[in-house]
Simulated scan of single mutants.
Amino acid sequence: MLLPVRFKPAYFAGAFILFFAEVLIALYAHDQIIRPYIGDMLVVILIYCFVKAFVNTPVTSTAVAVLIFAYTVEVMQYFKIVTLLGLQHSAIARVVIGTSFEWIDLIAYTVGIAIVLLSENIVAPKQGIRMQA
């Protein structure tokens, strides 16, 4: 089954802005809230926007797929996948995959996807914004 491909600049711009925000958080936020929780919340929104920038799929199924992906990465952290793959010396692998499992990260991912669903299904339609087209 091939996914319907259609480039959507608004989603791409959103992904780009969120990526920039994530980089700033990684470089400059060394706190107890923004880096660990806001960053995790934003990363699922970033992934959602990136997927939607290129693939024309329904909002809910895309959001659920991104959430499952995020949960899977977090569970892989629990099982120390970076070490199992022999990538413990790779800074990129440690940053992208992560190295420490936290239950609260699952909540942050869920909140991020809830924001996506609220934005797509409630806020955007009331504001006359059509991100789907």
Rank of each mutant, 00 (worst) to 15 (best):
P125H: 01
C49G: 02
V123P: 07
A114E: 00
I97W: 03
E102F: 14
V51N: 06
G39L: 02
A91C: 05
M41Y: 05
A13E: 12
P125F: 03
V66A: 07
L3A: 08
A26W: 07
G14T: 00
L46P: 00
S90G: 14
V51Y: 02
L46Y: 03
A93I: 10
I38G: 00
I45S: 01
V111I: 13
E120F: 02
F12N: 13
R35M: 07
V82I: 08
S90V: 09
K80I: 13
T57Q: 10
A93S: 12
R130Q: 11
S61I: 15
S90T: 12
L106A: 07
R6D: 14
V44F: 10
L85R: 03
P4M: 06
V44Q: 08
F69R: 01
F20D: 01
H30P: 09
V95T: 11
M76P: 04
G128F: 06
I25V: 08
E120N: 04
I38N: 00
L67D: 01
L67N: 00
F79G: 00
I92L: 05
Y11G: 06
A124P: 01
Y78G: 06
V123A: 11
A15R: 02
D105M: 04
V123L: 09
F101A: 03
A124I: 09
V64N: 02
T62P: 05
A133G: 15
I122Q: 09
V82H: 05
V111L: 15
Y28S: 04
R35E: 10
Y11M: 02
Y37S: 04
L18T: 02
T60L: 15
L117E: 10
V111R: 05
R6T: 10
L85I: 06
A63P: 02
A26E: 13
K52P: 04
I104Y: 12
F50E: 10
Q32Y: 14
A124Y: 13
G128A: 01
R94I: 01
H89I: 08
I115P: 03
E120A: 01
L67K: 05
A93G: 05
S100V: 09
S90M: 07
F19T: 08
I107S: 14
P9R: 14
H89D: 14
F101T: 02
V55C: 04
E102L: 13
Q127L: 15
A29Q: 13
A29V: 14
A124D: 11
Y28N: 09
L24E: 07
N121A: 14
I34Q: 06
I17E: 11
V5G: 01
W103Q: 05
G39R: 10
L117C: 12
T99Y: 04
A13F: 14
T110W: 03
R35C: 08
L87M: 15
I33R: 06
K8I: 08
V5H: 12
V44P: 06
V82R: 03
A133C: 15
G128H: 14
F16K: 08
A21D: 03
F50M: 09
V73A: 00
I25F: 08
A63L: 07
S100R: 15
T83E: 13
V96C: 11
E120R: 03
I34F: 05
A10M: 13
E74A: 02
I92G: 07
A21V: 14
A93K: 06
I34C: 04
F16D: 11
V95Y: 13
K52G: 04
I129Q: 14
L27P: 08
V5C: 06
K52M: 12
E102R: 11
I115G: 00
A15P: 12
V23H: 08
I25L: 07
A70P: 06
I122C: 11
I33A: 07
